[in-house]
């Protein structure tokens, strides 16, 4: 009986020690993995911000600064000119340059934070964005909101808007799409956003693992921020994604 006692005790002790060590080892590795993932997402977010800054700087330099320089020159000509006809012509040109400067400023502010997002909400901003995109690309963009009463908080709405923007940019650039559809529905407990296109099929999560670029990481980073989950549905043609946001009204 004594060997049974010691063997039994040893086996039970071994079981407990193994379980504890296994848990500690797994948790440590999981923690490292999560840290690494957070670092990558942060990098993607910073990279995306840097690119946005570069783009805005270019727009300011090439667009707004050019218009303002032209206005400065026209004002200079006006101070020197005595000919009535010349003055009328220069004034017309100045007016055109001022209008161009106003338009550039409007576009810049639109890109930085779409005003409609704050005034009318996420749905209207997406609708307007799709209208502009349709004009620019010739691709058919459809937006459907099945529950008009849903009011997504601005911070979450902004992230959702940027996520959809990233998806559409990718779809136009790599997917060669003819049609892109976004459907939003849900209630106070959850919101579901479906993104459907007829472009080239791709596996989001596989591409995310392999991707060196910031686009897909940017999507993940924004999804993490709004505590949203992404599911890729299996379809015959094109791609079908589903974004699920739990407690959408809760402002974190």
């Amino acid at each position: 009986m004594i060997p049974v006692f010691w063997i039994g005790t040893f086996i039970m002790l071994f079981l407990a020690v193994s379980l504890i060590l296994l848990v500690m080892f797994y948790q440590r590795n999981l923690h490292r993995y999560k840290l690494h993932e957070s670092e990558l997402l942060l990098k993607a977010s910073l990279e995306s911000e840097r690119l946005e800054r570069v783009r805005i700087a270019n727009e300011l330099h090439d667009g707004l600064q050019g218009d303002l320089n032209a206005i400065k020159n026209f004002v200079y000509i006006l101070t020197k000119s005595h000919d009535q006809n010349d003055m009328v012509f220069v004034l017309k040109e100045t007016k055109t340059a001022v209008e161009a400067a106003i338009e550039t400023t409007r576009l810049l502010s639109q890109k930085l934070m779409p005003p409609l997002l704050e005034q009318e909400g996420c749905g209207v901003a997406i609708e307007k964005y799709f209208l502009n995109l349709e004009k620019a690309t010739g691709v058919k963009f459809i937006f459907k909101s099945l529950d008009n009463d849903i009011k997504i908080p601005i911070s979450k709405g902004y992230e959702l808007y940027r996520i959809i923007q990233e998806f559409t940019t990718n779809a136009i650039k790599h997917g060669l799409i003819n049609e892109f559809m976004v459907v939003i529905y849900g209630d106070t407990t959850q919101i579901i956003v479906e993104l459907i296109d007829d472009g080239i099929k791709f596996d989001f999560f596989e591409c995310y693992k392999l991707s060196q670029g910031s686009g897909l990481r940017n999507i993940q980073s924004r999804l993490k921020f709004i505590k949203g989950g992404l599911i890729q549905r299996s379809v015959l043609n094109g791609n079908h994604f589903e974004i699920r946001i739990l407690n959408p009204l809760k402002n974190d």
């Binding site: 039994g8 005790t9 407990a16």
Partner: peptide
């Protein structure tokens, strides 16, 4: 938890597992 080794709850649960397992046959 960032690190289980610093969690008092984990330490006590591990202690319980070890104590109960080692004395079970006794």
């Amino acid at each position: 938890y960032d690190s289980l080794i610093h969690s008092p709850v984990f330490i006590v649960i591990s202690g319980l597992l070890l104590y109960m397992s080692s004395t079970l046959f006794l």
